[in-house]
Amino acid sequence: MRVLRPLAAVVAAVLLAYLLTTVVHNRYYYFAAYVVLQYVVLATAWNILGGYTGYVNFGTAAFFALGAYTAVVLLKTWKAALLVMVVAGGAVAGLLGLGIGYLTLRLKGVYFSIATLALAVVLQTLIMNWDYVGGATGYYAIRPRTVPLFDDYVAFLFVVMVLLAALSLSVAWAIEHSRLGRGLAAIRDNEEAAECLGVPTLRLKLLATTLSGALMGMAGAPFPYFITYIEPASAFNLDYAVNSLAMPMIGGTASWLGPLVGAVLLGTAQQVATVTISSELNLLIVGVVLVAFVILAPEGLLGLVRRRQQRRPA
């Protein structure tokens, strides 16, 4: 029962997205929706570690880019299928997440965040100097000319991202409704107390960092096909770190719905700004909105709604 509900939601979301591609043919919408959905995945993945467990990760770009560059290696070496790239990207980034998990043994709070930021810089430098994947000049990922069932490859990428978004939301939902979620919340609220009670803190943290990293890597794996020309500066863009942190904060970090709401609102606003004014505005939008929320609604939109509801019946 419990597993069936999110599973049904994933299948329904993918089917709906596929039906949409048979009706809407304007490619721009798929490009825009892909970016928003990619942020749904990143924000949800970030929230598993940042929101539920209380470890703020500033290195989203590292996990995302690792997924993307894993895909590049697979593409260049074996011309692998997209599905293989997504699974492998998730696995490699998940391994990096596991490593980050061991960092939490020694680094907490802001020091953990600084370490994750440094991780992104180190990884970017490594990739820039790795000629096989194009180094600093980048790599052209040529999309397959056709894909079964779809007229357009971008529409296909859009459906893949719908699948990943639904998948990560299901994972977040499942964590929230399980003992694991309560254990993670205990670590966030008071790690030492959790330890005193026999909550296996290290194991839970490793699980959270691995899951979070894997989902970010999966979001990055289709990126080379999406952008067709990938280079370190775009794959490691600071936007990923800032957005994936700001979106859950704006939506509300306490529930799986928060990152979804935040990513859809902020992601859409950025897409509109990109078309109407300039993409240079995107980080400014995030900054202003984030400051406003931290001051006016520290528990995000969902927290604001909840407080309204609690006040009404009284």
Binding site: R182, A185, A186, N190, A193
Partner: peptide, 10 residues
């Protein structure tokens, strides 16, 4: 533990 160390937001 000393100082109670509850999980305040739960």
């Amino acid at each position: 533990p000393e100082g109670r160390r509850l999980f305040p937001k739960l």
